[in-house]
Amino acid sequence: MRKTWILRCCLAAVALLVRSAMAQEQEKAEKSSGTGAAAAAATASSPDMHSPALPKPGREVVAEERAARLEGEKRFRTNCGRCHQQPHKFPPRVMATAIRHMRVRAMITDEDMRFILRYMTQ
């Protein structure tokens, strides 16, 4: 009886953790949408609001790509290297299956999975 209660408590604790993480995620999403709305408002109130949207400067895109690649590499080393030697890069569709397998087996997070997949398929 006592053991069943221990098990129930463990499950409840996990549920609470999941709930808190989901709340954090929701809060983050709300914040980012709020920031987006604020940015849109700022754009609308700017004097050149009627000018067409300018494409991101090429340098900025390259910098973003580079940052994403570095972050992907860091997460790849941190997550994959925990259990095994870091493999060479695989073709994108092979990597997509492998990362789904690792998502289940090694329980890597959704965010880490995205960065690693991006890094490994570039």
Binding site: A15, V18, R19, M22, E25, Q26, A29, P92, R93, V94, M95, A96, T97, A98, I99, R100, M113, R114, L117, R118, T121
Partner: peptide, 23 residues
């Protein structure tokens, strides 16, 4: 809890960009 997961979490999986194949 699973049922109330916000739809934002159902965003496109990165694998959708490179569809996984059997291995």
């Amino acid at each position: 809890l699973t049922a109330f997961v916000p739809s934002a979490l159902g965003q496109a999986a990165p694998e959708e960009e490179a569809r996984p194949i059997p291995l």
